[in-house]
Structure formats: structure tokens, C-alpha cells
């Protein structure tokens, strides 16, 4: 029983790391209807910039600030050079644009910082840590706490500030938002910048866990099942989806692995996601359109 709980909690905590990536998608999808395939590349870009600065002797918070600034510039450039010219185009066009973007961002990061693998140490040991008789990873607890704080900050931003209300207004109805003087471009830029910030946080945590390398951008593929389960438009859904994926893949690995063969962890989330697609196509928290006119 203790072992089961350890696996379960370990999985839940790891799942929040997926949620972090998924939240970046949700933000952009909600506000502009764009499925931003480049989110993974943004995570990589952030982590690589940060670690490269650290290696050149820049102190932690300095590197954090510079990386954040470069994410904001990236957001600005994407809005100006890609989204604005493509406004009113079909979603598939925008998706293809972000696919292209993801390679450009990866290439750019590689040109700037080189292609070798970097270790990233955030100063949090990965020693197991005892809580109520259970051994848990200290790093996982830290990551989960960070994810929790981030979500809290985002929900305050969305619900209590003018920017947040404008973002949700644009997500609901772009034409109506325009009609009362909200500037769509400004809102999109803010959303991309916030997604860039979320990418930075995810990049640091994932980079510390896996090492900063190009496969980091592949965590997009881990975020997909999370999005399918949680819905593309809900931050709460991204959290719950991450928890479900994290817990179930670990449990599957430990309990089904010996029966079916190892490595289930890698594809089990997709089995789950497909099952969800059949039962609830909009995800658990997917926003259903309010049908009342």
C-alpha cells in the first residue's frame, strides 16, 4: 500500500510538469484559436538561453530576467511577423505557421547557443524526502509547488485584472471585443508573452530534470494527451489532465509493465487520450459553447 501511494503521488507530481507545458498551449489557444505547435520550441529556447547565460557567469536572477526579456521579444516578433499578417486565415494555416515557427525557433536557439547538452542545476537536490512515512522526490515537490503558484498567479491575472478580462473577452468573441475598442494585437502579444513566461518556468524545471537538450522540445508530445483529456481551453483542465496522465502512466508502468512489457509509460497516455476522445471529445473541462440565444 505504501508503495502504491508512493508511485501514485510521484506520478501526480510528475504530471504537474506536463500541466506546465499544457498551460502554455491553453493560453494561446483560448485567446486566439491557434494551436501553437511552437510551445515546445519556446520551452527549449527559454531553457537554453537561461543555461547558456548561467554558464557564462551571469547570476541566477540576471539570467532569469534576460531570458524573460528575450521571451517577450520573441512573442512580439511572432505577433508582428506571423500572426498579424495571417489574421482571418483558416486555423490550419496558422497551425502550419506555428509548425514552421517551432523549427525556426529551435534553429535560432541552436545558432545562438550551440547544440551540446547542458546540465542545469537549480540547487534543489533530487534526494528522496520523507512525508508521512512516504518517500517523495524533493524536486518533484518543488516543481509541483511552482506549478501551483503559477496557476494561482494566472487565475488572479485572468479574473482580477483588466488585462485578464480583456483576454477572456477576446477568447469569447473577437468581433465584439473589437467593437468596444479592445486592441486584438495587443491582447495577442500579451498572451504570447505570458505563454513565453510559462514556457520559461517549464523550461527551467524540465531542463533541470532532463538536461537542456534538443529533445526538450519534444515534451510537446507529452502535453498533447494532457490537452485532449483536460480540454484545450481550460487551465484547470490542463492541471487535472496532467495529474491523470502523470499518475496513470506511472501506475501503468509499475503494475502493467511487468505483464505487457516495459516502456508502457511512453505510449500509455495516448491510449488514455484516445479513450477520452471517444467518450468526451471536448475533454473534461473543455468549454462547451453556451447555447442560449
Amino acid at each position: 500500500m505504501e508503495f502504491f501511494l508512493e508511485v501514485l503521488i510521484g506520478g501526480l507530481l510528475a504530471g504537474l510538469m506536463y500541466s506546465l507545458v499544457a498551460i502554455g498551449f491553453v493560453l494561446i489557444y483560448k485567446a486566439s484559436g491557434v494551436f501553437n505547435f511552437a510551445q515546445g520550441a519556446m520551452v527549449l529556447f527559454a531553457a537554453l538561453t537561461f543555461v547558456s547565460l548561467l554558464e557564462r557567469g551571469v547570476p541566477f536572477w540576471g539570467a532569469f530576467a534576460v531570458t524573460l526579456l528575450s521571451m517577450l521579444m520573441l512573442a512580439w516578433a511572432i505577433e508582428r511577423m506571423v500572426l498579424r499578417p495571417l489574421v482571418n486565415r483558416p486555423p490550419i494555416t496558422l497551425f502550419m505557421a506555428t509548425l514552421g515557427l517551432s523549427y525556426i525557433i529551435e534553429g535560432l536557439a541552436q545558432t545562438l547557443w550551440g547544440a551540446q547538452v547542458h546540465g542545469l542545476d537549480l540547487g534543489i537536490s533530487d534526494e528522496p524526502f520523507e512525508v508521512a512515512g512516504l518517500l517523495l522526490s524533493q524536486f518533484d515537490l518543488f516543481a509541483a509547488g511552482t506549478a501551483g503558484l503559477l496557476v494561482l498567479a494566472l487565475s488572479l491575472l485572468f479574473n482580477k485584472t483588466r488585462v485578464g478580462i480583456s483576454l477572456r473577452a477576446v477568447a469569447d468573441d473577437q468581433l465584439a471585443a473589437l467593437s468596444i475598442g479592445i486592441k486584438l494585437q495587443k491582447v495577442w502579444m500579451i498572451v504570447w508573452a505570458v505563454a513565453g513566461f510559462v514556457g520559461l518556468v517549464a523550461g527551467l524545471l524540465w531542463g533541470a530534470r532532463l538536461g537542456v537538450q534538443f529533445s526538450l522540445s519534444l515534451i510537446v508530445l507529452k502535453a498533447l494527451p494532457v490537452l485532449i483529456i483536460g480540454g484545450f481551453t481550460s487551465i484547470g483542465g490542463a492541471i487535472v489532465g496532467g495529474l491523470i496522465i502523470g499518475a496513470s502512466e506511472k501506475l501503468a508502468e509499475v503494475y502493467l509493465g511487468p505483464v505487457i512489457g516495459g516502456g508502457i509509460e511512453n505510449w500509455f497516455p495516448y491510449v488514455l487520450a484516445l479513450l477520452f476522445l471517444l467518450v468526451r471529445p471536448a475533454g473534461i473541462f473543455g468549454e462547451r459553447a453556451i447555447e442560449r440565444v
Binding site: R162, I165, S166, R168, A169, A171, D172, D173, L175, A176, A177, S179, I180, G181, I182, E287, A289, I290, V293
Partner: peptide
């Protein structure tokens, strides 16, 4: 706009506020 176009997921008050920004 024709057809009203309120922001359906925003509260009535948030809808009104959004016009003030």
C-alpha cells in the same frame, strides 16, 4: 452588433466593465 454578441463566459458585470477599459 447584430445578434448582441455578449461575451458568454464573462459575467454580466465583466461584460460591462470590458466596455469601460
Amino acid at each position: 452588433l447584430e445578434g448582441r454578441h455578449v461575451f458568454p463566459h464573462l459575467t454580466v458585470e465583466e461584460n460591462l466593465q470590458s466596455g469601460g477599459f
